[in-house]
């Protein structure tokens, strides 16, 4: 009887390796997780390019405009029409001027779908130009193949 009661205490599992491993995993996932708001959207299928190597640092004061294949624009996660872009940009511009910065120092990142019309991309660029933005970055997915 006495032997029986001592049995469950002796079957204690050594937790140390499991906890070690779990902490390792947590640290791994913590480092891999990126907090940077990489504005990627499933609605956009970026065109591929071999030269589109990822940039080292983040772009200074970027404004991201995403153009879907249907010709609408995603701005700050919201689907808006091509014509409404101007109003949003005006707001961006006034925010920049309030902060004492010129709009031409900002970069407009254009993430356009590969199937979007070039003319619409150019329309976006033109709208931005009218608001005083002049640095553009056409974003493409890095193609490692070949």
């Amino acid at each position: 009887m006495a032997k029986k009661t001592s049995d469950p205490s002796s079957t204690d599992i050594d937790m140390t390796p499991m906890i070690d491993m779990t902490f390792q995993l947590i640290t791994f996932f913590m480092f891999v997780m990126n907090f940077s708001e990489a504005e990627q959207d499933d609605r956009i299928q970026l065109p591929m390019s071999r030269l589109a190597k990822p940039v080292d640092g983040p772009v200074e004061k970027p404004i991201t405009l995403q153009l879907t294949s249907k010709g609408s624009v995603i701005y700050a996660g919201e689907l808006i029409g091509l014509r409404d872009v101007s109003g949003y940009l005006e707001r961006e511009k006034s925010v920049m001027i309030d902060a004492g910065k010129e709009p031409n120092t900002a970069t407009v990142i254009v993430r356009a779908d590969g199937a979007a019309k070039t003319g619409e991309v150019q329309d976006i660029i033109k709208i931005c130009q009218e608001k005083g933005f002049e640095k553009f970055a056409l974003r493409a997915k890095y193609d490692e193949g070949r």
Binding site: Q40, L46, A52, P54, V55, E130, K135, K141
Partner: peptide, 23 residues
């Protein structure tokens, strides 16, 4: 661990073509 695993987002590498076009 499950939080970090679930919030893991695999980001495809992207790059830019810089264009400077003043009006």
């Amino acid at each position: 661990m499950s939080f970090f695993m679930c919030s893991l987002k695999i980001v495809a590498p992207e790059g830019d073509f810089d264009i400077r076009m003043p009006l």
